[in-house]
Amino acid sequence: MKGLTITITVLLGSAFFGYLFAFIAGLCRLSSNIFLRKFTGFYVEVFRGTSLIVQLFWLYYAIPMLFGIELGSNWWAGVIAIALNYGAYMSEIVRGSILAVAKGQTEAATALNMSRFQRMRLVIFPQAVRMMLPEFGNYLIQMLKATSLVSLIGMTDILYYGDIIRSSNLSQAPTVYILVLFFYFILALPLIFLTRKLEGISKKGVAN
């Protein structure tokens, strides 16, 4: 199955940029700068409020028309769409986790005379990240599922090859799609176990 490479690279790209966007947007929403806060708030609401498939088509078909630019390739269109969408969802987790670190932790850090930046880096952030981990694992599985959409913008992923085989031999359709589903499931399995492990890690080492 040649499509596997595409599915995996799209997943890795989306995950990398998705987490990146999540941290940037999550931190911006906690910033004291009102402009930054409103702007990222707008981004998060727009991308959470519309559906991924619409965003994907919009990036792929509409952006080039609007600005006369190409995103480079459909790989980038797919990765950017998935990353922007899930980045918006996950930024809420970043924000929520940072806010959820007990207030006493900030106070203890202040009492040790840490600067604002040190409080964040040494005390708040390490604990917040532990809280984020299980949800981040869950979203990794969601992103894996989302990669199947890139076949709709002509990328040759697992689903694309499945469709090709199906259209050349209609009676094989059940076998083909069961196979495709199992491919996704096999990719998802390590992620499922990873998520369970992350849940274990996150239970330790966080103040209640």
Binding site: K145, L159, D163, L170, A173, P174, Y177, I178, Y184, F185
Partner: peptide, 22 residues
């Protein structure tokens, strides 16, 4: 777990294209 962790798009295709052939 299987249904949750595989793409709904593929499940949709399975029901629409493959189910009649089962």
């Amino acid at each position: 777990e299987f249904i949750r962790s595989t793409p709904p798009l593929v499940q949709l295709f399975f029901i629409y294209y493959a189910w009649p052939m089962v």
